[in-house]
Nucleic acid binder design. Structure first.
Lengths: 129, 129
DNA sequence: TCAAGTTACGCCGCGCGTAAGCATT
DNA sequence: AATGCTTACGCGCGGCGTAACTTGA
């Protein structure tokens, strides 16, 4: 179970078909088919009944759908919250929140700090020279 | 963001170190390190401050932790619900819930049905000869 | 000197797209 | 015929483990 499969599942359920879902997801039809097949195999449950060319949710699929939506929303909310944090934090450096760092900026060797990408929350207040 | 990275994140946060987390996850230490690095890059946020050999959650990490736990629990609950469904459904076939199938069992050609694995929810009531 | 995290590197497996096969309408 | 899902196949990328490096205790 991964987010790719879940979004494919929701897309197929909402659009009522694999090709329509593929279009929405910017994928090809076989890719969507594979994702669904993999999800079904992973969960050991069939999620859609393929009635000729019509695609209908099984009972298991109907049970999963709202949960899948919630999981996707949850992930999206987490991502958004972290983005907002990056903006809100503004002048307050991460350092101030750490137990051992109340007395200064550099709690470890500058070379170590300099060797890695600058954390977003420092960007506004600190720069290494 | 994938479940593998999230579980690695939670494990590191709970155990307070990468090697302990690796042991819990049945992975090697570099694998855990890579997962965290990838998650941080994906979210564009640093999740842990490496204070020498001590690992401490950043503000972003503290914000993510409960959400990550919830997402993992959510996925687990969904999986469990589907398993329970497979047992509970017992005698009731998927077919009865479908719009076009109120009159009979076989809503499409038997060859088509026979060509694919038997859905779990049929197993108790139906078998093809 | 040891412990712990990161980087380098080779390898295997997964996931996608193209193309072909099959069934429904 | 045409549409739509599945399977086959080849390829490229991602993730893991082993090994080597770096640094803090």
């Amino acid at each position: 179970m991964d987010w790719g499969s879940l979004s494919a599942f929701v897309a197929v359920a909402e659009r009522g078909g694999f090709s329509a879902a593929a279009e929405q997801l910017h994928l090809t039809q076989p890719a969507v088919s594979k994702r669904i097949a993999q999800l079904e195999q992973d969960l050991e449950v069939r999620l859609f009944d393929r009635l000729g060319r019509q695609v209908v949710l099984t009972e298991a699929g109907r049970l999963l759908l709202p949960r899948a939506r919630q999981m996707l929303a949850e992930a999206d909310a987490a991502r958004r919250a972290l983005q907002d944090l990056g903006q809100d934090i503004g002048g307050r450096p991460c350092c101030a929140a750490l137990p051992r760092c109340t007395r200064g900026w550099r709690w470890t060797s500058a070379s170590w700090i300099r060797s890695r990408p600058m954390p977003r929350c420092w960007a506004a207040t600190w720069s290494w020279r």
